[in-house]
């Protein structure tokens, strides 16, 4: 910054980034035990008209008096007039969100963060490997691929959850299959009624043959799962530059100002949440970093 300007200029849009805009809950879909999708519509038509997002981005969802939580957008990027947030009720804010009803209003700031490299992925095979609540930030990527199916090669979704009843969006799997996405689902544990696969997401890499140099891996889920998905990708010679991971940290501002979400040189809210693995590699296995 050079010399300071001695004028008091009025607040510009880049200064309103700490103030939420309002959105109304239009619908609530119960996805699994403790997880629901909230369908939001901005109350201000001008905001609605201006709002777009990229697959993998997130919003800060604000409940006045309770605080904010960074929540990825899980809906179709082609229709940003209805923004979907699939939320697991685990923290102070999300538990309060679980008590919202249709018609209630929440604050929204966003969209923030980096996104899945949909453009760069064109012409490649795509392997989407995710677990648990890691699928919602990837669903917009799935929708994008379905909207532009001919631009991508083979597409695999490797998805795992703790038990069959924890699987998100199971009713959509068929539609995804029809759109030419090979959906492989596994659960960590099941009862004997479960006909599907049992085992962890990284093991699904053993179930198909990939064209590694031409494949892009997108992964999101518990950090421990991400690690092993990355190892499986690297073991099969997928270049580190073609593996993308989405990370989660405590976030307050959403724009790399408050400092909370730092991982090494990165503000996960601004430089992430989606990272190309090779840029993350030096810090990835440092304990408690």
């Amino acid at each position: 910054m050079a010399t300071h300007v001695h004028t008091h200029s009025p607040a510009s849009p880049s200064e309103r980034l700490l103030e939420p805009v309002w959105a109304q809950v239009m619908d609530i879909t119960n996805e699994a035990e403790g997880i629901s999708t909230y369908w939001l519509k901005f109350t201000d038509p001008a905001v609605e008209a201006a709002y777009t997002f990229e697959p993998g981005q997130f919003n800060m969802v604000y409940l006045p008096g309770y605080g904010e939580a960074a929540i990825s957008i899980s809906s179709n990027p082609a229709d940003p007039t209805l923004v979907g947030h699939t939320i697991r009720f685990v923290g102070n804010v999300t538990r309060a969100i679980s008590r919202l009803k249709v018609g209630d209003v929440v604050g929204i700031r966003g969209p923030f963060g980096s996104y899945w490299p949909m453009k760069e992925m064109e012409g490649h095979d795509v392997i989407i490997a995710c677990g648990g609540i890691g699928l919602p930030p990837l669903r917009p990527a799935i929708y994008h691929i379905m909207n532009n199916r001919d631009k991508f090669g083979k597409v695999y979704l490797l998805y795992g959850a703790r038990t069959p009843k924890d699987l998100l969006y199971p009713t959509e799997f068929e539609e995804w299959e029809r759109a030419g996405i090979q959906v492989q689902v596994t659960v960590d544990r099941a009862d004997e009624d479960w006909q599907g696969q049992v085992g962890v997401v990284p093991m699904l890499f053993y179930r198909f043959r990939m064209d590694a140099p031409n494949s892009v891996v997108l992964t999101c889920g518990p950090e421990i799962m991400i690690r092993f998905v990355v190892y499986e990708g690297l073991a099969r010679r997928v270049p580190a530059e073609q593996i993308y991971v989405s990370l989660e940290r405590n976030m307050k501002c959403g724009q790399g100002s408050c400092g909370h979400c730092q991982l090494g040189p990165y503000f996960i809210c601004k430089d992430g949440p989606v990272f190309r693995f090779d840029t993350l590699q030096p810090y990835f296995n440092v304990e408690e970093f």
Partner: peptide, 10 residues
């Protein structure tokens, strides 16, 4: 040092 936190008082 520039880190900050935001809290609500309801």
């Amino acid at each position: 040092c520039f880190c900050w936190d935001a809290t609500d008082t309801l």
